[in-house]
Amino acid sequence: MKAFLRYREVWLLAAIVVLIGLISTRFPGFSDPANLRQVFNDTSILMILALGQMVVILTRSIDLSMASNLCFTGMVVAMLNAAHPAIPIPLLIVAALLVGLALGAINGLLVWRLNIPSIVVTLGTLTIYRGATFVISGGAWVNADQMSPAFIGLQRAALLGIPVLSWIAVLVIALFFLLMTRTALGRSIYAIGVNPTASVYAGIDVGRTKFIVFCLSGMIGGLCGYLWISRYVIASVEVANGYELNIIAACVIGGISIAGGIGSVGGAVLGALFLGIISNALPVINISPFWQMAISGSAIILAVVLNARGERRQGRIILRKAEAA
């Protein structure tokens, strides 16, 4: 299984290398290390969001409210910063994590305690959280000139020549890698996704674990709320509208099975990078944004077909071995 997963990620990595190579033939500067660092930085927020979505999808659930959570939490921290510029930025980040956590916990409680399918719950909270953003802001924007220099500057500061935003992404990737491979919670998340019934018999609390993954995706949404607003320096009701689909697309391209239980941190990161490269490169080689959408869409379907084929091949191997045994 592990060898098989590596196999899939290696292929995704190869596809990304080929993609970069192809783009370089039209736009030679694209494969410069400096430009690639820039692409990574541009994709950081999507990678972080995809990891939050991944843990939810692994448990056979989905969180459609992540982009709305991002929008709401982003507005909260932007308004706090505008009203009280003295609040230190680390404290604002903690606030973003807590607000996101609260919104995620609402999703999680509804899924856990009322046993409502997550797609229904988060479809509801998707509109509620965005609506709540309108309520707290009165529909007004928070503009760059209302934000403090520290608020905007933190993620742009360079550490060892790399922006803080990229470092945050690296840190989140490392934490999720530890979570999924080295903790009891990570193991339970996989077990629930692969076989929920057997997990119940093994003493795993399926409902509580789902609650925890929604809390996690909520915190990630909240963190990205701050990162997004401070990056694009405008907070409005329209922020990240429809972005939940990009997050899910990154997961799917990264080989995370919508049926749950299959997927890895590396896959989610590579899936996000793939989308990031496409959206970065196509404008510079003069391909219209509509082609971008078509290419992203084709990549999703191609990824699903390849993954389904991979799993089927795996199935045949099982059968042959079982017959030989």
Binding site: A191, N195, T197, A198, Y201
Partner: peptide, 8 residues
């Protein structure tokens, strides 16, 4: 269904 977790 209830015992082994195939895939792990």
């Amino acid at each position: 269904k209830q015992g082994v977790v195939i895939g792990l």
